[in-house]
Computed example of a mutant assay.
Amino acid sequence: MKATTPTATLTDCMDISQWQTYSIRKHEVIPMPTNQPLRYLATAKAERWNGQWLITAFTPHGDQSC
């Protein structure tokens, strides 16, 4: 018997425009680099194990805006 693990590939738009990086040492928000894209595509690969979908890989595509 051969069993095949169900797989899926998902693509979504990552929107990090409201994200902040905070310096605990300096007690301040660190600004994002000016060349940092704030919305870009991301791909996730998933597999179904024991009735649950598990993400096995996540790839941001900073060069592809959305």
Rank of each mutant, 00 (worst) to 15 (best):
D63Y: 15
A46T: 05
K2E: 07
I16A: 10
Q36H: 06
W19F: 13
P31W: 04
I30H: 11
L41Y: 02
Y40V: 12
W53M: 04
M14W: 09
A42Y: 02
L41T: 02
K2V: 14
Q36Y: 08
S65F: 11
S17P: 09
T43H: 01
T34I: 00
L54A: 05
P6K: 09
G62R: 11
P31V: 04
A46W: 01
R25D: 15
T5M: 14
T21M: 13
W53N: 03
P31N: 10
K45L: 02
L54P: 00
A46M: 04
G62C: 03
H61E: 11
A44M: 08
Q52L: 02
I16S: 10
Q52P: 00
D12Y: 13
Q36G: 01
A57N: 05
D15L: 08
P31Q: 09
Q20T: 13
P60E: 13
W49H: 10
A42C: 14
T59Q: 15
C13H: 09
R39T: 15
P37C: 05
R48P: 00
T34C: 00
F58I: 12
Q52V: 15
N35S: 08
T5L: 04
M1Y: 05
A3L: 11
T7L: 06
L10N: 13
H27M: 14
Q36F: 13
M32D: 00
T21I: 07
N50D: 01
I30L: 14
L10T: 12
S23A: 06
E47P: 01
R39V: 13
T56F: 09
S17A: 12
L54I: 10
S17T: 14
T5C: 07
T5R: 09
P37Q: 10
Q18I: 03
Q36T: 12
D12S: 07
P6I: 12
D63I: 06
K26R: 15
L10Q: 14
S65E: 08
E28R: 13
A44I: 02
E47N: 01
A46G: 02
